[in-house]
């Protein structure tokens, strides 16, 4: 069992975390830290528990046993009404984009700011800026179904960073994209990471892992089997 490294800049800390779905053990006795500003890949075969691990951070799932501390708060003790405010500190990206079909590109991104009760003028300004940054300004009135997969994921990334979250959780963000689109998505995430955000990417995309921008942890059958530091970092 790996011990948390007890550094002060740990944003997320896991202590002996297990998650069970009925008879299936999705995560088994995971202990680890994720640091502020870190880029972390979570890899492993399908069904290894990568998505489940990410869900524990924003309370998409609760642990069966063990403790998860996010921004210093124990997730087992977080009141239900506090969950939306926790989630505002995360930007979440999915393989299937999860855009709202009947809202156009602008409205999908603006939703994040609307949900926070931001003023209208500010919402419009910031949404345009983010869409420009994501290269989607010209398509802001388009409906999601008229966009390519790469474009939809760019909108999803724009939505994830619209609220300026501290942590980006990307679950197989390039899983259904061509290499060129995947490159653009990683480029957008990388740019946001350089602004000081923490980025967690669950993937089994070997090309992506070969870039070795950050630390890699590997899960197999719910167990944490290895943790490799980022290139240039001490192991």
């Amino acid at each position: 069992m790996t011990q948390p490294d007890n550094t002060d800049d740990a944003l997320i800390r896991l202590f002996n975390v297990s998650k069970r779905f009925g008879a299936k053990l999705a995560l088994s006795n995971i202990t680890m830290d994720i640091h502020k500003g870190e880029w972390l890949y979570v890899t492993g075969p399908s069904g290894a528990g990568k998505s489940t691990l990410l869900k524990l951070f924003y309370l998409g799932e609760k642990t069966t046993s063990g403790q998860v501390l996010v921004f210093g708060t124990n997730m087992n003790r977080l009141a239900r009404r506090e969950i939306p405010f926790l989630r505002r500190r995360f930007g979440i990206i999915f393989q299937d984009f999860k855009l709202i079909a009947h809202r156009n590109v602008f409205e999908n991104v603006a939703l994040v700011l609307e949900a926070r009760g931001e003023p209208r003028a500010m919402i419009a300004k910031r949404t345009r800026n983010i869409l420009r940054h994501a290269g989607m300004e010209m398509r802001m009135n388009a409906m999601p179904t008229t966009l390519s997969g790469g474009e939809q994921q760019r909108v999803a990334v724009a939505r994830a960073i619209a609220g300026q979250p501290e942590v980006i959780l990307a679950d197989e963000p390039t899983g259904s994209l061509d290499p060129k689109s995947a490159e653009i998505i990683i480029g957008l995430l990388s740019a946001y990471h350089k602004r000081g955000a923490t980025v967690l990417v669950a993937t089994h995309d070997t090309e992506l892992l070969a870039r070795r921008e950050g630390r890699i942890i590997r899960l197999e059958e719910g167990r944490l089997v290895s943790s490799e530091p980022a290139v240039g970092e001490a192991p």
Binding site: Y58, G60, I92, L111, A115
Partner: peptide, 16 residues
């Protein structure tokens, strides 16, 4: 369901 789930994920409160 998907729309509501997305709203929950982006931090929308129950009231919103």
């Amino acid at each position: 369901r998907d729309e509501i789930e997305i709203m929950q994920l982006v931090g929308a409160t129950g009231n919103f």
